[in-house]
C-alpha cells in the first residue's frame, strides 16, 4: 500500500513538474513550469524577499556585497535577519551583474527579473524560462500577485492578502473618513538641498492608498504622473500633508533622529516651516520595512498608521 502511495505521489510530482503553462511576461507570452521548483531571483529586495514570504522554491538570488563582508540579501536581512546560508539559497552575484554560469549551474526552471535588469535576456532565456516583471506597468500589489502567480504560490499570497485586507478594513472602521486625511512620504536630500516627494513609495503607498488616505494637493501637483518628484528645499513651506512620513536606514548607520539631522543640516528651524512637523505629525519610519515588497513590511506600515493616525487623529486633530 505504502509503495502504491509513494508511486502515486511520484507520478503526481512528475506530472506537475512536466506541466507547463503560458503567462504574459514583459517580452511577450512565455511557457513556464506549472509548479516551479528551482527559481533564481535577480533582484533581492523586490523579488527574493517576496518569494521568501510566499515560500516559493528559490535556489539562487543576487545580493549586495561590501568589501570583505559576507554578501547579504537586501530586505531579507533587514526584515528577517536571514542570509543566503540560512535560506539554503546560492549567491549568484551582485545585483545588476549576475554570474550567468553560476545561474546555469543551479539548473533553474524559472528565472525572475525586472525590465531594468542589465543581464542579457537572450542568455537568461537559454538557461530557463525567464519571467520579466514590467516595473512601469504594474503597481506594487499587482507585481506581488504576479510573483505569486508565476511561482504557483497564489494560495499563500491569498491567505496573507486576506489577513492584510482585514487589517486595512479595521483601520478604515476606526476613522470617520480616511479621504479627509492627507498622508505623504517625503525625504530630505541634503547633498542636493532638495526634498523627494513620493507618490509611489512601495509598501507605504500601497497601505495609504488601500486605507483611502488622500495625497496632499501640493504633492499631486508636483509629482504629476510620475512615481516621485524633487523639489528645492526653498519650497519646504509648501509641503501640505496632514501626516508627513520620512524614512531612516539603520543598515547605513542611521538612527531614528537621522532624518531630523538631515533637515537641520540644510536649514535650522525647518520644523516651524512645515505644518505637519509643527503640529507633531511628522513621523520617520524604518526604510527597508516601509518600502520592501513584503507582507511584513505592509504590516509594519499598518501598525504605524494605526498608532500615529487612527489612534491620535480623532483625539487631537479632528476639529
Amino acid at each position: 500500500m505504502k509503495s502504491i502511495i509513494a508511486l502515486f505521489l511520484t507520478l503526481v510530482t512528475a506530472i506537475s513538474l512536466a506541466q507547463t503553462r503560458t503567462v504574459a511576461s514583459y517580452q511577450g507570452e512565455i511557457e513556464i513550469p506549472a509548479n516551479p521548483q528551482r527559481i533564481v531571483a535577480l533582484l533581492d529586495h523586490m523579488i527574493m524577499l517576496p518569494l521568501y514570504e510566499l515560500d516559493a522554491n528559490v535556489v539562487g538570488s543576487v545580493g549586495r556585497q561590501w568589501e570583505g563582508q559576507e554578501p547579504y540579501i537586501r530586505g531579507v536581512r533587514a526584515l528577517y535577519q536571514q542570509n543566503f546560508a540560512d535560506l539554503g539559497v546560492e549567491f549568484v552575484g551582485t545585483a545588476f551583474s549576475a554570474d550567468i554560469e553560476k545561474i546555469t549551474a543551479l539548473n533553474p526552471d524559472l528565472i525572475i527579473t525586472y525590465n531594468f535588469g542589465s543581464e542579457s535576456l537572450e542568455q537568461l532565456e537559454a538557461i530557463a524560462p525567464t519571467y520579466v516583471i514590467d516595473a512601469d506597468k504594474y503597481s506594487y500589489m499587482e507585481r506581488f500577485e504576479l510573483l505569486a502567480e508565476v511561482t504557483n504560490t497564489t494560495d499563500v499570497f491569498n491567505a496573507k492578502k486576506a489577513h492584510y485586507d482585514e487589517r486595512v478594513a479595521e483601520i478604515q472602521a476606526w476613522l470617520t473618513n480616511p479621504a479627509d486625511i492627507s498622508v505623504a512620504m517625503a525625504m530630505p536630500r541634503p547633498d542636493s538641498a532638495e526634498i523627494t516627494l513620493y507618490r509611489d513609495y512601495g509598501a507605504f503607498s500601497q497601505v495609504a492608498n488601500d486605507i483611502g488616505f488622500s495625497l496632499p494637493a501640493f504633492f499631486a501637483e508636483q509629482i504629476g504622473e510620475s512615481a516621485s518628484a524633487k523639489i528645492s528645499i526653498e519650497d519646504l513651506a509648501s509641503i501640505d500633508a496632514d501626516y508627513l512620513f520620512d524614512t531612516f536606514e539603520p543598515n547605513r548607520g542611521d538612527t531614528a533622529t537621522s532624518t531630523i539631522e538631515r533637515y537641520n543640516s540644510m536649514i535650522p528651524n525647518w520644523c516651524e516651516a512645515v505644518e505637519a512637523c509643527r503640529e507633531g505629525r511628522y513621523i520617520p519610519l524604518r526604510r527597508t520595512d516601509s518600502f520592501s515588497m513584503s507582507f511584513k513590511a505592509l504590516d509594519y506600515v499598518l501598525a504605524q498608521f494605526a498608532t500615529h493616525i487612527a489612534a491620535r487623529h480623532e483625539l487631537y486633530f479632528n476639529e
Binding site: F96, S97, I100, Y114, F116, S118, E119, E122
Partner: peptide, 21 residues
Amino acid sequence: GDIDRAMSALAWLAGSINSAT
C-alpha cells in the same frame, strides 16, 4: 536618471563581455 536604470547603465559603461552572442 532613476537609480535602478542608472546602475544598469553603469554596468554597461564598465565594458563587459558577458552578453556576447
